[in-house]
Structure formats: C-alpha cells, structure tokens
Nucleic acid binder design. Structure first.
Lengths: 117, 117
DNA sequence: TCCATATTTCGACTATATAGGAAATTTCGA
DNA sequence: TCGAAATTTCCTATATAGTCGAAATATGGA
C-alpha cells in the first residue's frame, strides 16, 4: 500500500459516523448492505451518509453495486488488511514490541473464537 | 481502547507530516528523539512540528520528557498496539479474512526478519 | 546576570471537512 | 408513461484543521 492510500484510509476511518458505517459493513459480510438500511440503522440523513460512503469508497475501504433501486455497499477486506499490514510493517520493523502482541489477536480471528489457537 | 481514543489516534496518523514524525519516533526506539532533530530531518518549521507533535501526544501515540534544553519525544508502543488491536478486533470479529493474513506479519516482527518464524 | 539555544504558545489567515436542504437521477411497478 | 422509492449530486453555511511569523518560556553556559 502506498503512503497516499494509507493516509486517505486513515482519514476515512477517523470519523465516528464513517467508522460506524464501515464496521457495519464488515459485519454484514460479502452480502453487504443497502445505503438506506445503513442510514436507517445509524439514524443519519441519506445524503449525509451518501457523502460519507463516498469518502470510504474513494479510500478503497468499501465498494458498491446496484441491486434494483438500492445501492449495496460491501467492505473491501483486502484493503483493510493492506492498511493494517502497512501500519504494522511500517511501525514494527525492528520493533517487535508493537506487533508481537497482535499475533494472538490475529490467530484468534482465524477461527473467530477465543482460545481456539 | 475506547472509540474516542481510536478516533483521535486515527486522525493524528491521517496526516503526512505526523505519520512521518511518528514513524521516525518508532524507529528511534526508547531513546526517542529531540523535537529539533525531528524538525530538521523532516524539514518543517519548529513551531509547525510542535503543534503536530502535540496532536500525536494528545492522541496518546507519543510522549515527551525534558532533557536539558531539548524535549525528547518517544513513541508509545503500547498505545499503537492498542489501536491496531482495536481495529483488528473490531473489524475481524467473525470475519477472519481480514486478520488471518496479518498473523504472518505479526510473527515476522517477532524476530525482526523475514522467514524467521 | 546576560545571552544563545530549544521549544512552545499565541494569533491570524487559509484551506479543508462536515452537514444537510433541495433538486436531480435511476429504477421499479402499475 | 407516470408516480413512488432509493440514492446521489449540488449548493451553501458552518466548523474544524493546518500553517507559520512573532513573541513567550525554559534551560544551560559564560
């Protein structure tokens, strides 16, 4: 991941409403969620949400497809991974104390449960 | 880590100059680096840097101590770890595809070398 | 005590981000 | 073809962030 991409992804996530929307889309999985549904659940005006989704989208963190009258947004997992990798590699090179504790978190995620690895 | 802390850390890092300063401090290790030295290396006016260091500091990503006429800044590794954990736990819960690839990155960091784990 | 050094604080200006009303666009169904 | 539904685009107002000159503060040395 390039510096510019990392900066725009960080900026996109550094906003309460956008982080909430992104989380929701991550949880929604590959099916994704319609813009209107997100707006309803987060209780924000549709146009406000739309512009925030656009920012997340330009940052590469989500993408959209049309389904009938709805626009379905989905999280771009691979780019979130790339951002985390970027921060980890960048910050941990030669300084294992930052990243070492993350092994457990990452391992736990592999089975989606605590105490599985 | 609380939502508010994560947001302020993300916002602090979402700035080219601040990310560069933070990286430099991570590389500098526990010894840290004087404000003036950072400003010189990044080629930014001292007062501009100072306000950016202040933002990183309020976000909990760095801290400072006085040493004679200099102020030495150091990275707060534990809070960077907490931010990464927050993003990983938050985003990866139930969706291993984001975090699973990070195991390798985290493991590699443990010995500071590729292909060591 | 006085001066040079290191850094921060203050203040003012510019730039960018945010929010949301109103209108436009796209799609579906009647 | 018309109207309702879903979403975005346009626009404007307001708020927040960023920059840096100038002045202030703290320190060490002569």
């Amino acid at each position: 991941m390039e510096l510019k991409n990392a900066l725009s992804a960080l900026a996109a996530l550094a906003h309460e409403g956008r982080l909430a929307a992104f989380r929701m889309l991550v949880q929604a999985g590959h099916e994704g969620m319609a813009a209107g549904e997100i707006a309803r659940r987060l209780d924000v005006p549709p146009n406000t949400l739309s512009s925030n989704l656009s920012i997340l989208s330009h940052a590469g963190l989500i993408e959209s497809r049309r389904d009938g009258r709805s626009i379905i947004y989905t999280a771009r997992y691979e780019n979130m991974t790339a951002l985390l990798e970027y921060l980890m590699q960048d910050c941990c090179a030669g300084h294992p104390e930052i990243c070492a504790p993350l092994v457990k978190v990452a391992l736990d995620s592999r089975c989606g449960q605590e105490g599985c690895a």
